[in-house]
């Protein structure tokens, strides 16, 4: 295993786990019309969390 591959994996993993990569995925999916700005996108995403709450266990 090359160090580069591990670093690339780490970067990818952290972006996935934190949800930081969500916007880029949205841009890739969004091919018609003007996409939301990042600010607007993230705002909607965090407001979605109002509706429910993930349980945190003991």
């Amino acid at each position: 295993m090359k160090a580069g591959a591990v670093l690339r994996f780490l970067r990818w993993y952290l972006r996935e786990v934190t949800g930081e990569g969500e916007y880029d995925k949205y841009l890739a999916r969004h091919t018609h019309g003007t996409p939301l700005s990042r600010r607007e996108f993230e705002r909607r995403r965090s407001d979605q969390r109002e509706k429910g709450s993930a349980m945190r266990c003991c």
Partner: peptide
């Protein structure tokens, strides 16, 4: 729907799930 239903990489989901179950208990 890109919100709560979303296919997620197994290792990423493992991270989320572990963070949700493991706490002070």
């Amino acid at each position: 729907n890109g919100v709560d239903y979303q296919p997620t990489d197994r290792r990423v989901l493992l991270g989320h799930h572990f963070a949700a179950i493991a706490g002070a208990g």
